[in-house]
Design a protein around this nucleic acid. Structure first.
Length: 480
RNA sequence: CGAUGCGUGGCUCAGCUUGGUAGAGCGCUGCGUUCGGGACGCAGAGGUCGCAGGUUCAAAUCCUGUCGCAUCGACCA
């Protein structure tokens, strides 16, 4: 059919070229536009609204755990960045430098924050005096800049939006507790709100954050079987405290170093939503994060009464607490259907003269395309039920995809075969040496994603790479 | 930073080999007919061909330089 052909031209099929499919969806769903600066994107209303919903939901959850929002400067003097050795080595290659103020060279150059550990530490060093000042649980919503070589919308841009939480605690135990608490908060958010199942785990030393004692991560699996690190939570121990001299006086009048954490989630999550739920017709948004949950599309809207009735329907849905929009533009209905699908709006309501006469309307699920007829007086409850079903079903499908893309291997040959032929996570034992980790990466391009937090039965008792005794279970995979 | 590709109306591109003063489709504007899976007719608007030099009577086209963007690798959320 000619019409199908047009759709196919608009969005490349996932199976043909996943990377191109992703780019097409990002553009056709009008989430972003490219800007004139490489790697910096214009986030358009449809994309920003998703981010706002992510923000609102995360922010609410943070505050329930006692977190307060603050704002730090965006510039970091070079001397401040230099204070923690590992940290500066990790970030120096990708920071942007400000060298002039107006026409005059600065005495000391400053970088645009790639992350704000150093700023928070500098602040905490003065602000924290006594055990009574602890814990400090601050978070900031901001953008950061990392001068990436290769960029992709949402997944890796030179400037991206995120939140970074930075806490300071009296004891190592408290810091570890907060680190895990935030990791679980992230995971729950992904699963409950984004309908995106994740693997929770700890990073190996090689993969951990620059300057951290331990890094925890949630790893999601994209539709093409590649992993995406979707959120991280770091325990810094007292490393930064010692570098920045953040000390407090305890109850016994002794000076102690604080123990710190930091944790972050970014606009990359939008990329994850696209690649976990999207299909060949475009974006598919989980109802809980969708800016518009229902789109009302009038058919033959020029006919007497159609628009009025459609508006009435919209108002009923709105009153029921559903985020609803009506497309009364002069495009043809077919156009509007495609548009709604590309944008991933969970439910479309079709209403035309025939429906009005019969006192009915048609609801269409974005995820399954299933059509449900219902009487006009039942539209709100039908839509509410459908939204819940969609949210639940999307999670179930993503969960099924994740679980069916985990291979368990005992030998190196099987490992290589899995990387080649079974996209997804690979569960395999590891001896703990960085050598093996590097070798695996060189041989297969797969990296260690994480060591699962949850106790899982050992796959074998020897390292999948070197064959030496091993007791660490690692999830491996190709990653974005 | 390496490899590849691309810069021509808002978008996708043709034209470049062989130099002669810019085209198509889509989109946009107006009017009319349409409307249950990207409708159609008619009439319009819109481009110093990425930038800078050079060659030439004449450059989108040839030469030199330069900038930018995309995709793929190494590094990273």
């Amino acid at each position: 059919m000619a019409k199908d052909k047009k759709l196919v031209e608009a969005i490349t099929s996932m199976d043909t070229d996943f990377a191109q499919w992703y780019t097409d969806v990002v553009k056709k769903a009008e989430l972003i536009d490219y800007s004139s600066v490489k790697g910096c994107m214009v986030i358009k209303p449809a994309g920003y609204a998703i981010w706002e919903n992510i923000q609102n939901e995360l922010d609410r959850r943070f505050k329930e755990t006692g977190v307060e929002n603050v704002y730090m400067p965006m510039f970091i003097p070079e001397s401040l960045l230099q204070k923690e050795k590992d940290h500066v080595e990790g970030f120096a290659p990708e920071v942007a430098w400000v060298t002039h103020g107006g026409l005059n060279p600065l005495q000391e150059r400053m970088c645009v924050r790639p992350t704000s550990e150093t700023l928070f530490c500098d602040f905490y060093a003065n602000d924290i005096q006594s055990y009574r000042d602890l814990p400090k649980c601050y978070n900031q919503w901001c953008s950061v800049v990392r001068w990436e070589k290769e960029t992709r919308p949402f997944l890796r841009s030179r400037e991206f939006l995120w939140q970074e939480g930075h806490t300071a605690h009296a004891t190592a135990g408290e810091a570890e507790e907060r680190t895990i608490q935030m990791l679980n908060l992230y995971a729950d958010f992904c699963e409950e709100v984004l309908a995106m199942p994740v693997v929770r785990g700890k990073k190996t030393d090689k993969e951990k954050f620059a300057g951290a004692e331990a890094t925890y991560t949630i790893e999601a699996l994209m539709h093409d079987g590649k992993a995406l690190q979707s959120g991280t939570s770091h325990n810094f121990g007292d490393g930064f405290a010692k570098a920045f001299d953040i000390q407090y006086t305890d109850r016994d009048n002794k000076l102690q170093y604080v123990h710190q954490t930091s944790w972050g989630m970014t606009t990359r999550l939008i990329g994850a939503i696209i690649m976990v739920h999207g299909d060949d017709s475009g974006l598919v948004l989980p109802p809980r994060i969708a800016p518009a949950q229902v789109m009302v599309i009038p058919i033959q809207q020029h006919k007497e009464g159609v628009l009025d009735k459609a508006a009435e329907l919209r108002d009923i849905l709105k009153k029921a607490g559903i985020r609803v929009k009506m497309d009364d533009s002069e495009k043809s209905p077919g156009w509007k259907f495609s548009e709604q699908e590309m944008r991933g709006i969970p439910i479309r309501v079709e209403l035309g003269p025939k429906d009005i006469e019969a006192g009915k309307c048609v609801l269409v699920r974005r995820d399954t395309r299933e059509k449900i007829e219902c009487t006009l007086d039942q539209v709100a409850e039908t839509a509410e039920r459908l939204l819940q079903d969609i949210q639940k079903d999307m999670y179930a499908r993503a969960k099924e995809h994740l679980e069916s893309h985990i291979s368990e291997v005992k030998s190196y040959a099987a490992f290589k075969d899995a990387v080649e032929n079974k996209p997804g996570f690979i569960r395999a034992m590891w001896c703990g040496s960085e050598q093996c980790e590097v070798k695996i990466k060189e041989d297969t391009t797969a990296t260690s994603r994480c060591m699962p937090l949850k106790e899982e039965a050992a796959v074998s008792d020897v390292c999948v790479c070197c064959g030496k005794p091993a007791h660490k279970l690692v999830y491996w995979g190709k990653a974005y």
